[in-house]
């Protein structure tokens, strides 16, 4: 009886279209970066289909730019692959953290498909929405992920075909689009900000700066996430 009352009082589960709508800020941020990737790939000697294939199959921004550098420098395939794989290790934390926020009983039957789209930005957007009281659903995750994925692959294709001149004529537009993901992360941070989360946020920020300045950007990101999460464990 109590359970039924709880379900009746809960907001409805969002569907595919709700997720697709919420992917708009991510898509707007992804498109110009993917566009830049398409331009860079063709400048590095790849064909447009090869550039689009990388976005379709790898679907990880920083890894793809690094892949270009590794391929053009003639690095062995296995060495290059290992480097790219190590860059995305942080993603192992996203699924369990999201399901923890989604709560007991959240379906993950189709996670093999929607989790492919669990990038930094999609994870942040999903987590922020759940923290604001929205319920979890797999169709919603599909919508959120698909909007971002289409923007990424589409942006790559347009960039590879159009070349670098298109956005260079509009530097202010290019700059604004370049700031889109920073603004998105900042807004997401505001949306989940709470007294309980402050230690994790502060420790993560400091560890990211130290890791980045001392070693590399990739190390900084991994250090920030792990140190921040450990700070949450230590908090009583």
């Amino acid at each position: 009886m109590t359970d039924r009352r709880l379900v009746q009082n809960s907001p409805p589960r969002p569907g595919f279209l709700a997720g697709l709508g919420q992917s708009l800020p991510i898509a707007l941020g992804y498109f110009p970066i993917a566009f830049s990737f398409g331009v860079a790939a063709t400048r590095a000697g790849l064909t447009a289909p090869e550039a689009v294939m990388l976005s379709l199959v790898i679907y990880a921004g920083a890894s793809q730019f690094l892949a270009l550098a590794l391929v053009t420098s003639g690095a062995p395939v296995l060495v290059a692959a290992f480097t790219l794989i190590a860059m995305n290790l942080r993603h192992v934390l996203y699924g369990p953290a999201l399901m923890k926020q989604a709560g007991t009983g959240a379906s993950r039957r189709h996670a093999w498909a929607w989790a492919w789209g669990l990038t930094d930005e999609v994870f942040g957007q999903a987590l922020g929405a759940l923290a604001r009281g929205q319920r979890f659903s797999e169709p919603w995750m599909f919508g959120l992920g698909l909007g971002a994925y289409v923007a990424w692959v589409g942006g790559t294709g347009v960039g590879a075909l159009a070349g670098g001149g298109a956005l260079e004529s509009f530097p202010a537009v290019s700059a604004g689009l370049g700031f889109m993901l920073t603004a998105l992360f900042l807004a997401l941070l505001l949306s989940i900000l709470s007294r309980a989360a402050l230690p994790a946020i502060a420790v993560a920020a400091v560890a990211t700066v130290i890791g980045t300045l001392a070693v590399s950007g990739t190390t900084g990101i991994l250090a920030g996430m792990i140190a921040g999460a450990l700070a949450g464990v230590l908090r009583r």
């Binding site: 934390l93 923290a131 993901l181 989940i192 920030g224 921040g228 908090r235």
Partner: peptide, 18 residues
């Protein structure tokens, strides 16, 4: 507690990294 802190830590990390 680790998983609950992962989200805020990840988003804070991405703000700083960007």
């Amino acid at each position: 507690r680790f998983l609950a802190a992962t989200g805020p830590a990840a988003i804070a990390t991405l703000v700083v990294a960007s």
